[in-house]
Design a protein around this nucleic acid. Structure first.
Lengths: 106, 106
DNA sequence: CAAATATATGAACATATGCTCATATATAAC
DNA sequence: GTTATATATGAGCATATGTTCATATATTTG
């Protein structure tokens, strides 16, 4: 059995894979972060735009964006004093969209 | 724009969808639960088998199985005094396997 | 029924998490 | 430089989470 095939069958996950997977899902396990990522699906937004659109405090949004940035799920570009955040991980966004798609059909 | 199309574009998630999605990912955000689900990918296992195979306490496994059972991610069948647990949500197992597959290629 | 085995459960505890508040930093306009 | 605006950061707090320990429940065996 090859290395790749074993992954599909669910045999002993190594420590690093386990950590990465759990961290990834942890990022998607909070309603606020889901709403932020879901908003960024539509395109880039500044911190204040996110806060106003989702009715969250500026501080809360900034903290969550730092969290998402550390996991490289979002990135930003600066324009003057405004930072425009956007998504930065197609694979994770794909997982999120699959889950939303599945959950919303009920 | 139709209801279905809006989901793909990421506009306002309703409260229930948000809750279901966050709960689903929360289930997948813990290393112990990931290991349990990953083991159940290979077929049904009793509580003690899971505990021994993954080197976890019986109590911890039972608690986590209750968690997973409440979310209908696992089910069980009784054989005497032994309960054999197995996976019960193809969609979520699919999300997990995608993440594992992606993470393990690094 | 009693003893043994498999699993479930509840309390307690330490740690993690997400928010708010206050304040700091950075850029722009004047 | 000073002021205004956009964002970041750190402390503090309440709640959530995962584990262990002790014990309860359920099923089988004798």
């Amino acid at each position: 059995m090859s290395e790749e095939e074993r992954h599909h069958q669910g045999i002993d996950l190594d420590e690093e894979t386990l950590f990465v997977v759990s961290q990834t899902f942890k990022a998607l396990s909070d309603p606020t972060r889901i709403r932020i990522l879901n908003l960024l699906c539509r395109g880039e937004h500044s911190v204040n735009e996110i806060a106003e659109t989702l009715n969250l405090s500026q501080s809360s949004v900034s903290h969550q964006l730092r969290f998402l940035k550390n996991l490289r799920l979002v990135k930003y570009r600066r324009a003057g004093r405004t930072l425009y955040y956007s998504e930065d991980d197609d694979h994770v966004m794909n997982l999120l969209n699959q889950a939303i798609e599945h959950a919303s059909h009920h």
